[in-house]
Write a protein that binds this DNA or RNA. Structure first.
Lengths: 116, 116
DNA sequence: GTATTATATATAACTTCCTTATATATTTCA
DNA sequence: TGAAATATATAAGGAAGTTATATATAATAC
């Protein structure tokens, strides 16, 4: 993994929770939604997404049901749990704290200095 | 590793480079400096710092010389290289981009909205 | 004077997260 | 009919971080 692609490490679960907070979705749709919301920046691969969802379900952050329908492929629909909501709130604060501290060390960017 | 301590992943080299950009320092001093500048938030352990420094030296981002002196323990002093400076600049931009995208998804914090 | 703490560097074993590669199957479009 | 998009999944391997351990000197406390 090239050094410059290290920045996203650890953000996968909170990104998923954030998308699911707006309504339940199946895995593939979560991927597309993240890509759409970030103009392609967060392009998650299936090999990262699905194992992560499995782990999150095991941790009680999300729950799933299989959905079958008229001319549509069978798919597993995920929704956020109460514990997932709490994790999302706590995780958001953690990330904000981290960003504050990081940019305090690196020098605050214009946006954080309020010069947007 | 608890989930909430995942946020710092990948930030180690750039934090080190950022400290060394202000002048050369030995490993232990880098650790203390990071802790001081972040009011204890970035409390790096020796087992993370030293292997990282070794890797960074191998990558040409820092260079080191052993320093011995009057009543002081022998220590390895690191300084940032030209390549390290470039990496610091590029890495800072990467982190800013990431933060922008992440908080766009999570909802911007007060500081980024300019309400500090 | 001896013990503890702080300073200082280092490696080994292990876990976690991510990547690359591969597999399978359905639906839509050219 | 063949390719691309949709949809889920696992295996193998690499990179980053944690916990544990080792070693050694200098400063401070008792």
């Amino acid at each position: 993994m090239p050094d410059l692609q290290q920045v996203r490490k650890g953000s996968t679960p909170i990104l998923i929770l954030s998308v699911l907070a707006d309504g339940k979705k199946h895995g593939y749709a979560i991927m597309r939604e993240l890509e759409a919301r970030s103009q392609g920046y967060f392009s998650m691969t299936a090999a990262l997404l699905y194992p992560t969802l499995h782990q999150m379900e095991q941790d009680g952050l999300v729950q799933s049901t299989w959905e079958e329908g008229n001319g549509v492929r069978k798919r597993k629909v995920y929704s956020i749990t109460a514990a997932g909501g709490e994790r999302l709130a706590a995780g958001s604060m953690e990330w904000r704290q981290f960003a504050e501290q990081l940019f305090h060390i690196l020098g605050k960017p214009a946006a954080i200095r309020g010069e947007q």
